[in-house]
Amino acid sequence: MSADTTTATSGIGPVEGGAGTAYGVDNPAPVIEAPRKRTAKTPRSTRGNFEMAAWLFMRLSGIVLVVLVLGHLLIQLVLDGGVSKIGFAFVAGRWASPFWQIWDLLMLWLAMLHGGNGLRTVINDYAERDTTRFWLKMLLYTATVFTVLLGTLVIFTFDPNIR
């Protein structure tokens, strides 16, 4: 079997196309097009496709969120007197350090994009009409972008001396 030989034009091999069939040179069996055959018109490889990226992102961000969110809850609600210690001074103290700024920034972005993409999936799965789906997603995207931008703005421009 050499590599440069091409497929026989009729897909019928000597075994299947043996004696007794009505097909012949003048009466070939109908061509069965492979469904979704790749042609010049079909888009190029969909590798790096959005749905795949979204799926991967959910898992990767989930792993990071385990650390960020559980750590966050532990610090805010359990350690050092629990929830009663949280106040302006506590937040101001923590955001004085770039470490906690980056922690909170990362948590904000990852949780919002993770939650936003999760809700996008839920909407895709449950919305029945295209218009409902479209507007629900617009609402979701607006809320996500607004929250992410507002949160980022606060983390970067936080002024501990505000009165």
Binding site: R38, S45, R47, F50, E51, M52, A54, T121, D125
Partner: peptide
């Protein structure tokens, strides 16, 4: 694989 990489392909599996 490309066919199943579709937006209604394997990634919709929950």
């Amino acid at each position: 694989l490309e066919i199943l990489n579709d937006k209604d392909g394997v990634w919709r599996c929950r």
